[in-house]
């Protein structure tokens, strides 16, 4: 089945994208990634610990030749910081992709969309493939598209909240008004949440805490893989309209 997601010429074979934060160790991260069937993983940029150096490195477990590495600017609260982290990430040479976050508030981790728009514009001009993490706001999604985003990543719910797709109607409007891949990022708590995002017509779903925080992250990764596939298939199959009253499935003819 040829149903690949393509962003700026890059082919993604999986519509489930996986974050690599919060796992017990790199070994578990690796097993989760394998179970999820993903080919794209997010990573964060942080200082090397120069006092207590571990010889192990995340990329020893996730081969950039096999997986597409999507660095983020998590933890950045200003445009300046987000630009700095994005440029450092690109300097590594693993990717021009950047999952752009400009966070507005510590408690909600909601994006500062004014800053996000500015940073998107600047990084797009610098040749980055910018994937901004934004609110489920159709107008901002459109603005980000106009500013040069390569895809838009609206949240389903706050990061790590597991509340699912809180505003499916807004996601639907974003899908109808923004002519770019739409990837739900944040809020997915269980398999049905991922399916709902895909059934709406989203192009992919990015999950970290929903997998990492599960009792059995490897099993949840596999569940999410199936959920994303099922949701995508259902979307393409075209669901029946919702109706208030029944329609019989069995024929009335031939009844005794």
């Amino acid at each position: 089945m040829d149903d690949k997601l393509v962003i700026r010429g890059i082919e993604f074979k999986s519509r489930l994208w996986v974050g690599t934060g919060k796992y017990k160790d790199f070994e578990e991260t690796k097993r989760v990634i394998e179970a999820s069937g993903t080919d794209v993983v997010t990573v964060a940029v942080r200082r090397v610990n120069i006092i207590d150096r571990k010889s192990e490195n995340l990329l020893d477990y996730i081969d950039p030749k096999i997986y597409k590495i999507l660095p983020n600017t998590a933890g950045c609260y200003t445009v300046e910081d987000a630009l700095r982290y994005a440029r450092l990430a690109r300097e590594s040479g693993v990717s021009d992709l950047i999952k752009l976050e400009v966070i507005g508030d510590e408690k909600t981790l909601f994006p500062d969309t004014c800053g996000l728009l500015k940073a998107t514009e600047i990084l797009a001009k610098e040749g980055f493939i910018v994937l901004p993490y934004t609110n489920d706001d159709p107008i901002m999604a459109k603005r980000l598209a106009d500013a040069g985003a390569a895809a838009v990543m609206p949240l389903g719910a706050p990061i790590g909240s597991g509340l699912g797709i809180r505003n499916p109607y807004n996601i639907k409007i974003i899908l109808e008004t923004v002519n770019l891949p739409i990837i739900v990022d944040a809020g997915v708590g269980t398999a049905s949440d991922a399916s709902i995002a895909m059934e709406l017509g989203c192009d992919a779903v990015l999950i970290n805490t929903g997998i990492a925080g599960a009792k059995d992250p490897v099993a949840m990764a596999e569940a999410m893989k199936h959920a994303v596939l099922a949701g995508r298939l259902a979307y393409k199959a075209g669901r029946i309209p919702k109706k208030l009253y029944a329609t019989a499935s069995s024929p009335l003819e031939g009844m005794l």
Binding site: G19, T20, G21, K22, Y23, T29, T42, V43, A44, V45, R46, R47, V48, I50, N57, L58, L59, I69, P71, N72, A74, L88, A89, S92, V94, I159, A186, L206, N208, T209
Partner: peptide, 10 residues
Amino acid sequence: IEIVNFVGGG
């Protein structure tokens, strides 16, 4: 000087 690397993140 800042020396950075990739770590697990979402």
